[in-house]
Amino acid sequence: MNNKNINRETIIKFNPSQLVNLPVFLLGMILIPGLCLLDDLIKLYLPSGFIPEEIELYIRNLPVYLALLYAIYLGYQILKISCIRYEISPEEFRYYSGILSRKHEFIENYRVKDFSINRPLIYRLFGLGNLTIYTSDKTTPVFKMEAISNPQDIYKTLRGLVEQNRRAKHVFEVD
């Protein structure tokens, strides 16, 4: 988390943790021994001479192809999380994501209505948490930031900026 005290500029920049990819990593821990077992089973039970040689080569290498496919998927998931960035400024909250096609989303601070912090056990072990922002924005009424570091500090900073922005723009919440 980088803090800057330049007025009208970004105050906080932060990214989600790769812990978001924990299910993908766990899948790999299950998949790799399964692929080794599949390789042994193919070598043991694949009848030779029954299947044409061109196809037999592909079947014998099936575990390698599946492992390569999983490695590509894992790399994509890691890159996808690495390309997410959040920024908080006195005027707005910014969200950037995407690998080849970048998505930029902006939420004016005065539109923020409420916050929610959720800290699952695995995230708490690493000092992380989820921060959900509820807004009156038409395109993004609920925005969730997963596995961010120090969600309470970010909440306090964002809440202060929301109140400051509302006072400056003379915006008051009416339900």
Rank of each mutant, 00 (worst) to 15 (best):
I84R: 02
I12K: 08
R94D: 07
P120Y: 01
S48D: 14
N165Q: 14
L68D: 14
Q152T: 13
L27Y: 09
R159G: 05
N21E: 08
H104W: 10
F50D: 14
Y123M: 04
E87I: 01
F126P: 01
I117Y: 03
L31S: 00
Q18P: 00
F14R: 07
E54I: 12
L41A: 05
N150F: 06
Y96L: 01
M29E: 12
F143H: 00
D137C: 01
V162C: 01
F25V: 13
V20N: 05
F106G: 00
I30R: 08
T135E: 00
N150R: 12
G129S: 04
L19P: 00
K13P: 01
P120H: 05
L19H: 01
L57Q: 09
I72D: 08
N150Y: 10
Y45E: 11
V24Q: 05
F50T: 13
S48V: 12
R94H: 15
L35W: 01
I107N: 05
K43F: 03
L100S: 14
I30A: 14
D40E: 13
Y65W: 15
Y123C: 05
Y110A: 01
E173T: 04
Q164M: 15
L27T: 07
V162G: 02
Y70K: 05
M1C: 09
C83N: 02
N61M: 09
V24S: 00
F50A: 13
N118M: 06
M29L: 15
H170D: 12
D39K: 02
L131D: 02
F126H: 14
I78S: 02
L37D: 11
K144V: 10
